[in-house]
Design a protein around this nucleic acid. Structure first.
Lengths: 161, 161
DNA sequence: AATAATAGTTAACATTGTAAACTGTTAACT
DNA sequence: AGTTAACAGTTTACAATGTTAACTATTATT
């Protein structure tokens, strides 16, 4: 019964395709799970803003979350429209916009954190603590391996710095 | 130096976000690597067609590769335009279209297989055989865990069958 | 004071996902 | 046989996202 599916995990298929399949389902389910909260996308952006210890500019977020700045503008426009964040000009450097969660967002952040954690738990179900840790460390390794390959505009932008 | 990046691998971030970051870079690099071959996208579709033992219909491919049928049509249109595949009506069931690689595609398939394998190797660099196997088996587990969650149109379509 | 660099915005375009309406073909059922 | 339902694929329209380039405003450099 699984023979079809197993083909997807054949090593001659692009690794990216396997990840892509997981991704689509993951976000579909997460979106469904969260839709009653008033946002259905960009939870990771909210989490990043919530977690940010330093000043949270759009540049900071796009570097951290691997969005180009144009997409970042659109995502933040969306979150502003949903009344989840505010954009204020930084008086210290009037080029920068400081991003902050609204009260409305702060109220739902626990639910978002909880939903994400639950979602991750569901995804990782059946893997013991050891396997999970190894899995995450594999992802980190792969992330770093891939970061410096050519054909990647984000890298090019980062290198120019 | 890695403190920013490590945040991406924090457990309170959506797992999907981590995978998404990897994905973008992976396909960017793969596309770059392959562009001299005359196709720059949809390698996994070509591989799936190449590997298909059974009759290769569009339905078969969209089920296997997790594309909805509309996207599948567009992808195959692209591959036809690139002269990589042919679409012929199945005489046994005239509703179905059988997808086959052209000679042109068959000539570059070894390069594609090789490129993907090389790309996967680069991505997995530094992970020993054991870790790699565990990683793939984790992906398979996650895939299956996520498959049955709500909020997923592909599932709904499959369930209706 | 002139120039370069940075942060963010806008516009135009391409790709992809989704939904709905559609054609043509086969299967099922009375 | 004739109606109906199901299936394979196409087309259209729309929304989300990525990419590039040109742009404004502000700050840093010289």
């Amino acid at each position: 019964m699984l023979s079809e599916k197993e083909k997807r995990f054949n090593e001659s298929m692009p690794l990216g395709k396997l990840l892509g399949g997981i991704l689509k389902k993951y976000f579909g389910a997460l979106s469904k799970k969260m839709e009653h909260l008033g946002v259905d996308r960009h939870f990771s952006t909210l989490v990043a803003i919530d977690n940010a210890k330093q000043k949270c500019t759009q540049q900071y977020l796009s570097d951290l979350l691997d969005f180009d700045k144009v997409s970042m503008v659109r995502i933040l426009d969306y979150l502003v429209a949903k009344k989840m964040i505010t954009r204020t000009v930084n008086p210290q450097d009037r080029r920068e916009h400081l991003i902050q969660l609204t009260l409305k967002a702060e109220k739902i952040m626990p639910a978002i954190h909880h939903g994400i954690k639950e979602m991750n738990l569901k995804a990782l179900k059946g893997l013991n603590k050891n396997d999970q840790e190894l899995f995450y460390s594999c992802l980190a390794t792969i992330f770093n391996n891939i970061e410096d390959l050519p054909g990647n505009t984000v890298d090019i932008k980062l290198k120019k710095k």
